[in-house]
Amino acid sequence: MFKKVLSLLMVSVFILTLAVGCGAGGQNDTGENEDKVKIAMVTDVGGVNDQSFNQSAWEGLQRAEEELGIEVSYLESNQDADYIPNLETLLDANNDLIWGIGYKMGNAILEAAKQNPDQKYAIIDYAYEDTPDNLVGVVFKAEQPSFLVGYIAGKMTETGKVGFVGGIKSAVIDGFDYGFHAGVKYANPDVEIIRQYAESFTDSAKGKAIATNMFQNGADIVFHAAGAVGDGVIEAAKEQGKYAIGVDRDQNYLAPDNVITSAMKRVDNAMFNMAKELKEGNFPGGQTVVYGLKEGGVDIAPTTSKHVPADILEEVEELKQKIIDGEIVVPFNEETYNEFISENIK
């Protein structure tokens, strides 16, 4: 018996050795087109199919591959401790630009940029006080589309109650939270808003439980800014026949009859634009790039017209213009929200 096992083992080892030999040959072939621009991204723990900003980022890179002929790849992180080794793996793969997706990677990217001054880095959702020359921070004014969807919710609610489901409290999620609150109150100061945080970006069952609870307490529209938790929120709206508002991408396809609009953060546009600028040699190193309504970096979903009446949409368009012109400054945290309320709502 043991002899048999041993011989089998030897054969397998032999095959495996063969495999390594062949594989090495294959790798050399890919090294030929070195003049091609290479961009890679590291996702945060949400993974590349999170229906949210990681997926959006990857879509942006895929578009860059199609339209600009850039070589793109991604690497997913399973836990926070993976960020640094993942960034290093991509560094060793000779990429021209390495992206970190999500503010959780803020420190890992900064460290990497400091240690490898010749490598270009960029990060979504993080602004540094002092950005090194080989690093770009990209941030979105998430409060602006949140304000607009909040306005729609405030106008469309029939029960006078709407809900907000957040992921884990942070500066980025605060933007969604208070932007939405301000929008609802701007539309109708009497509407009550129920707010709850899921303390997770991945637990969709929890999102469903929270949203179901909100619907049963009389809310008829729930907005979420919680990554994959939001899948559960939309699921709950579908089951209860109520409305949900999506986030980051146009999430109408998840429940065409229930997702009335989405607060879109065009991470894909930002990724694509950066790829273009890199290819043209205009990498904005050392800066923080801000995407708002004005820059086309945030918006409400194009499918909004399916469910939202035309007159409300018109008002939303006017509001959009006012935000772009700076007439309305949308609050993004508790402090600015309180100011906004005392100034705008009697």
């Binding site: 495999a19 390594v20 594989g23 090495a24 294959g26 790798q27 080794p85 290093e88 793996t89 060793d92």
Partner: peptide, 26 residues
Amino acid sequence: NPLEAYSVMISGVFSRPKYISWTIIY
């Protein structure tokens, strides 16, 4: 291609001292 996949994996662990360090850290 599984051959390519395993070779990437094995060289990703053994081809540089740094990778071995990381493997031990993991």
